[in-house]
C-alpha cells in the first residue's frame, strides 16, 4: 500500500534519533579538540628521524646513505652527506646527514622511506596537528625539526620500538664481543711485535677513540680524523682509563 515504505523509513529515523541519546554505537561522533580518539599504534603521519640519547647532534641514527631519498615516490627528501664521520651505536665511523630536509607538503605518508631504511633511522610520526600559516617554510622540515628521541618512538610505536631496541642491543653485544676478540688478537700481535717503539702511537690512538657517552666498544681508528669528526662530542667524552691492552704495554 502507498505510504508504508515511507512510514517504515520514518520509524527508522525516529529510532536513530532516540538511539543517538542512549546507544554509543549510534552516536559515533566525538567533539574533537576536547575529546580525542586514541590513535592506533600503526597510525602514521609524517616521517621523523630517530636519535638515541638526548642529544640529536650526537645520537642521530641516520648515516646519510640516501636510500630513502632515492626511493621516496614523490621525492620529498633532500639529504646532504657530511664530509666527515662520527661513530654510530656500534662505534663504527659513519657519515651523518649535514642537511636532511623533508617537505611535508609533498610527502604522501606512504612509509616507503621507513621500509627501505636499513638503519631504523627514519620512522613515521603520529603528530597530525601541523597546520601552519607559513605555506613554504613552515612545511619544509629540517634536521633539527625532524629529530625525535628514541623515547618518543617507544611511546608512539611501542611494539615496533621494542623489537628494534632488542635487535640493536643484540647487534651491539655482538659487536662488543667481536671488538673484544679483535682487540685480544691485536694485543697478542702487539705482544709478539717489538714493544716500546709502538707505545707512543698506540696511546695517542686510544686517547682519540675514547668511548662517546654511554657507547661501549670503541674501535681503533686513526686518531686525528676521529678527533675532527666529533668536534662537539669532546664534552661528553668519558675520560676512562685506556681499556685496550695495547695501552698497558
Amino acid at each position: 500500500m502507498l505510504g508504508v515504505g515511507i512510514i517504515k523509513g520514518l520509524a527508522e529515523t525516529g529510532r536513530n534519533f532516540i538511539g543517538s541519546y542512549f546507544d554509543r554505537d549510534r552516536l559515533v561522533t566525538v567533539e574533537y579538540p576536547e575529546q580525542r580518539v586514541p590513535l592506533r599504534e600503526n597510525f602514521r603521519q609524517f616521517p621523523f628521524l630517530v636519535h638515541d640519547g638526548q642529544d640529536a647532534a650526537i645520537g642521530l641514527r641516520c648515516v646519510a646513505c640516501q636510500i630513502c631519498e632515492k626511493e621516496c615516490p614523490p621525492q620529498c627528501i633532500y639529504i646532504e652527506k657530511s664530509k666527515d664521520k662520527k661513530p654510530d651505536h656500534l662505534g663504527k665511523p659513519q657519515f651523518f646527514p649535514a642537511v636532511f630536509n623533508i617537505d611535508i607538503s609533498v610527502c604522501m605518508s606512504c612509509q616507503i622511506c621507513v621500509e627501505v631504511c636499513p638503519f631504523d633511522a627514519i620512522k613515521m610520526d603520529q603528530d597530525f596537528e601541523l597546520s601552519t600559516a607559513d605555506r613554504f617554510g613552515g612545511l619544509l622540515l629540517g634536521k633539527t625539526q625532524l629529530a625525535r628521541p628514541n623515547t618518543h618512538f617507544q611511546r608512539i610505536h611501542p611494539r615496533e620500538a621494542a623489537e628494534i631496541d632488542t635487535r640493536r642491543a643484540d647487534e651491539r653485544q655482538k659487536a662488543e664481543a667481536k671488538a673484544k676478540a679483535d682487540a685480544e688478537a691485536k694485543a697478542k700481535a702487539a705482544a709478539a711485535a717489538a714493544a716500546g717503539t709502538a707505545a707512543a702511537t698506540t696511546t695517542a690512538a686510544v686517547d682519540a677513540a675514547k668511548p662517546v657517552g654511554a657507547r661501549p666498544a670503541p674501535t681503533t681508528v686513526p686518531g686525528p680524523a676521529s678527533a675532527r669528526a666529533l668536534p662537539g662530542a669532546g664534552a661528553g667524552t668519558v675520560p676512562a682509563a685506556p681499556s685496550e691492552p695495547g695501552g698497558q704495554v
Partner: peptide
C-alpha cells in the same frame, strides 16, 4: 540538531 540526531551526529553545539 534534530536532523543531526537522526543522522547520528551531534549537530551545531
Amino acid at each position: 540538531k534534530g536532523i543531526a540526531r537522526m543522522q547520528n551526529r551531534l549537530g551545531p553545539n
